[in-house]
Nucleic acid binder design. Structure first.
Length: 510
RNA sequence: GAUCUCGUAGCUCAGCCGGUAGAGCACUUGACUUUUAAUCAAGGGGUCCUGGGUUCGAGUCCCAGCGGGAUCACCA
């Protein structure tokens, strides 16, 4: 045990003294809770009697549990604030009631002196309204449930709304999320909304009859996306394994296997940079539906996001994000990629050859690498000139084939594939294709990726022979979709950083 | 990975031109039976991120490192 602060030493001494007085600071038995603080404060009712006195009509025998977050002594009485999962309520204690006889040790010692802020307690009593009008629990029984031996940085607000001792340092908040959620309970709302978002999405898919599945996180070949993986090693098999960067190829194997619709909501892992929109592990939703194409998928996404937004935003489809208002009600604008570039630059990149594209990139002050092909440059031009305009949900459709080795060739436009990405607030939220199910075409695309890899592109896709075999057996026409769950959560909870929508964002070790 | 910026008490922060560290809350002791940032009186608490350097003297200036935040690059 190393250097304890004065306050930690005092709390440990208090813990010992409580035990010496015969009180268990960590009792094993359950404590029955019959009410929540927020419900009481919202619903307490009283009547005024003929003699002018007031009488509570409800909550006259309740039992609450939570942390003591403030304590005010007033002689032989005391006021405290109790915080439970719902909110806070004031407690009122009188010595003569807690300790009716001569022995006032429980009140004078245990409650008045040995109780610390942050301690978990259970209280029973009746609710009334104080002279100053605050709904308060008049405590008749008091019990320690768990002692806190480390001081909490409790936030205080005065009558003018000034905030004192705010626990605001993001590093501390993320590293000690348990403290953050305790002293800044408003952040719990983000995670409650995130949970509502996920359960609404599952409900939407389940109602269509699609099946939630789980596919391997440890994969021998990291396929399905262009990204650098985390590598690990399996001892018994003595082989390298990768944490998945995508689950696409496994979900398609299930479509080959005869499921009409499968989806998975789970973590993906990418060994790349971290910033306010990237965490090394992130949550993605991927869904594949047989006999559909990307036009159908656009409609499905509109219906799904509208449904999910309503579940999170109490029936509204409009999310406030910073100073923007984003409406998730469909239909969304559809803008082919090349038209989008024309719209915002006036240039027709489709007509340009590689040298002309390179020149255009220079004009835009884009740093072009030698190994970039047409597709990569067009993608960069799009990112530079169009992306930030796409505030309301917008589908960008029909991408160059080079960038998209798993999507089917466009039915009418050579050089393009049937792919769309959904942009909201200038950021990509979803990505979908009419899936490539021609096994010979797929093999050629993988081989093109291998060539890119030989040219030094570390993110080029690896060839997955077993996946190709599954396509050779025959995959029905299928449309697939991926949604970045963390980014959708950011939009629906008005948060500017991914760390705020992750309970435990990745941090450097201390 | 690059640039900017920050690191002082449990928490939030002051600390001037370099002169051995300060406030509020929290904590300790005492008073008070409807208070609410309770109040009143008294008191304790510091590896000034780490390591070097300049200087008679460094929280302060310089260098390096560690960690955070912001912006950028890569990516979803």
């Amino acid at each position: 045990m190393q250097n304890l602060s004065e306050q930690e030493i005092v709390r440990r001494e208090n813990l010992q003294k409580i035990r010496e007085l015969g009180v268990d600071p960590y009792p094993p038995e359950q404590f029955e809770v019959t009410a929540l603080a927020a419900d009481i404060v919202a619903n307490f009712e009283e009547e005024i009697l003929e003699d002018g006195k007031k009488r509570g009509l409800n909550y006259q025998e309740v039992s609450l549990a939570g942390r003591i977050m403030a304590s005010r002594e007033a002689g032989k009485a005391m006021f405290m604030n109790l915080q439970d999962s719902s909110g806070r309520i004031q407690l009122y204690l009188r010595r003569e009631e807690i300790c009716p006889g001569e022995d006032t040790a429980l009140f004078d010692m245990v409650i008045k002196k040995l109780l610390d802020l942050g301690d978990y307690v259970g209280v029973k009593g009746f609710v009334f309204r104080t002279r100053t009008g605050e709904v308060t629990l008049h405590v008749q029984e008091f019990k320690f449930l768990a002692k806190s031996i480390r001081p909490l940085p409790i936030v205080k607000r005065d009558a003018e709304g000034n905030v004192f001792d705010a626990f605001t340092d993001p590093e501390q908040r993320y590293r000690m999320r348990y403290v953050d959620l305790t002293v800044n309970p408003e952040y719990k709302d983000i995670f409650i909304k995130r949970s509502k978002m996920l359960s609404a999405m599952r409900r939407f898919f389940d109602d269509q009859g699609w099946l939630e599945v789980e596919t391997p996180i440890l994969q021998p070949i990291h396929g399905g996306a262009a990204a650098r993986p985390f590598a690990t090693h399996h001892n018994t098999l003595d082989m390298p394994l990768y944490l998945r960067i995508a689950n696409e190829l496994y979900l398609k194997r299930l479509i080959v296997g005869g499921f009409d619709g499968v989806y998975e909501i789970g973590k993906m892992f990418r060994n790349e940079g971290m910033d306010r929109t990237h965490n090394p592990e992130f949550t993605s939703m991927e869904i594949y539906v047989a006999y559909k194409d990307y036009n159908w998928m656009m409609k499905m996404v509109e219906e799904c996001l509208e449904y999910v937004a309503k579940a999170v935003l109490d029936g509204s489809t409009v999310a406030r994000f910073g100073d923007q208002e984003i409406d998730f009600a469909g239909p969304y604008e559809r803008l082919p990629l090349l038209e989008g570039i024309r719209k915002y630059t006036g240039k027709d990149v489709a007509a340009m050859d590689e040298a002309q594209l390179r020149q255009f990139c220079k004009e835009l002050h884009l740093e072009v690498e030698d190994n970039w092909g047409r597709g990569k440059m067009i993608d960069e031009i799009f990112g530079e000139t169009v992306e930030h305009h796409l505030i309301q949900p917008t589908y960008i459709t029909d991408y160059p084939i080079e960038m998209t080795p798993l999507a089917k060739k466009h039915r009418s436009q050579p050089g393009l594939v049937e792919r769309f990405e959904l942009y909201v607030n200038g950021k990509e939220i979803a990505n979908a294709y009419t899936e490539l199910n021609d096994p010979l075409d797929q093999r050629e695309r993988f081989e093109d990726q291998l060539k890119l890899r030989e040219r030094g592109d570390e993110e080029a896709m690896a060839l997955d022979e077993d996946f190709l075999r599954s396509l050779e057996y025959g995959m029905p026409p299928t449309s697939g979709l991926g949604i970045g769950i963390d980014r959708l959560a950011m939009l629906l909870t008005n948060q500017q950083t991914i760390q705020e929508v992750l309970l435990f964002p990745q941090m450097r070790p201390k």
